[in-house]
Amino acid sequence: MTSQPAFTPPPNARAYFLDTSRGAFAVVDHPVAPGVEARGTALLLPGFTGSKEDFTLMQEPLAARGYRTIAVDGRGQHESDGPEDDESAYARGELAKDVLAQAEALDARDTPLHLFGHSLGGQIARAAVLIDHTPFRSLTLMASGPAQISDSQQQRVKLLRDALGVMTMAETWEAIRAMGPPEEVGGPARGIGGQDLLRRRWLGTKPAQLLATGRQLTTEPDRVDELAALPLPFHVLSGASDDTWPVPVLDDMAARLKARRTIIPGAEHSPNADQPLPTAEAVADFWDSVRETGSDEGSDA
């Protein structure tokens, strides 16, 4: 694909379409900072109604710690193409295979490749490693729980799905804004760039993607035991409060995974937006521990 994504990336980063065996995906690729030893690469998956731009404030501090990061719009999300009406294209297994194709296309064989997923992106990342964990050195789940979302957020998703059944994306945008937050489920996710970018990425996202992934969020089974059986280091990171998956639910999931557990003070469901610097530092600390010891120990809770 020769065209370029419309988003202007931060300094030193590059926005382009990553060609894979399953199509092209819009990414923001931030290299390691000049003069810093390269320590690894990470693939960053955004949440429901989110996009690659959600990670912008984390990418520079991660680059300063030696990590190249590639934030990606999933199939049908913001600047990545996908069918308007065919929900089957957004089945969880299909989205997981997309992640594996992205990892293969990055050709990061000479450096550890870490997988990082926020909210819905965490559940897609989980599905990907359950198909094949071997491309990845670790998995970080940020504000992403073991099964379906909370009852209150399920109601918000239902409202969104009902609205999409009778309104256009533009009409739904206005209706959701009238409802106010939430930031992640049932309304535009928090992000940089103000209302213009939020509206543009909402209108760029395919309705079928929102319908299919919204349904998945309300029906996702608990697959933590399957995940725990994999030979991967895990990191469960969240804010100090979360309406989508309550913090005690995330604590329990971390214990079941024997994962590093990090809670970011002053953050809620989107630590990447609420507290990007301490979030980036916690993530880099985890990746460093994996690189240096071959496993992870301890908790930052």
Results as ranks from 00 to 15, higher is better:
5 P>M: 06
8 T>H: 13
11 P>D: 11
13 A>N: 06
14 R>K: 15
21 S>T: 15
24 A>E: 10
28 V>N: 13
28 V>C: 12
31 P>S: 08
32 V>S: 01
33 A>I: 04
36 V>P: 04
37 E>L: 12
38 A>C: 01
38 A>R: 09
39 R>D: 06
42 A>G: 14
48 F>I: 01
50 G>W: 03
53 E>I: 12
53 E>F: 02
59 Q>G: 01
61 P>Y: 08
62 L>Q: 04
63 A>H: 05
68 R>S: 04
74 G>K: 08
74 G>R: 10
79 E>Q: 15
80 S>F: 07
84 E>R: 13
86 D>Q: 13
86 D>F: 00
91 A>Y: 00
92 R>K: 12
92 R>Y: 02
93 G>C: 07
93 G>N: 10
94 E>K: 10
95 L>R: 04
95 L>G: 06
100 L>T: 02
102 Q>Y: 07
102 Q>A: 10
103 A>F: 11
105 A>W: 02
109 R>P: 02
111 T>G: 01
115 L>E: 09
115 L>S: 04
115 L>M: 09
119 S>E: 03
121 G>V: 04
130 L>G: 03
132 D>R: 01
133 H>R: 14
134 T>R: 15
136 F>C: 03
140 T>I: 14
148 Q>V: 04
156 R>T: 00
160 L>E: 03
161 R>G: 01
161 R>M: 11
162 D>N: 05
162 D>S: 08
163 A>I: 07
164 L>C: 00
166 V>Y: 07
171 E>H: 00
173 W>G: 02
177 R>I: 01
177 R>V: 05
182 P>Q: 08
185 V>L: 15
190 R>Q: 14
196 D>Q: 12
197 L>T: 08
202 W>S: 10
203 L>E: 12
204 G>D: 01
205 T>R: 10
211 L>F: 00
214 G>H: 00
215 R>C: 00
215 R>M: 00
219 T>N: 02
221 P>C: 05
223 R>V: 15
224 V>H: 06
225 D>T: 14
235 H>F: 14
237 L>P: 08
238 S>Q: 12
239 G>A: 11
243 D>H: 12
249 V>H: 02
250 L>N: 11
251 D>W: 03
254 A>Q: 09
256 R>T: 02
258 K>C: 12
260 R>H: 13
261 R>H: 13
263 I>W: 10
263 I>A: 07
265 P>T: 05
266 G>P: 11
285 D>N: 13
287 W>M: 12
298 G>V: 06
300 D>Q: 14
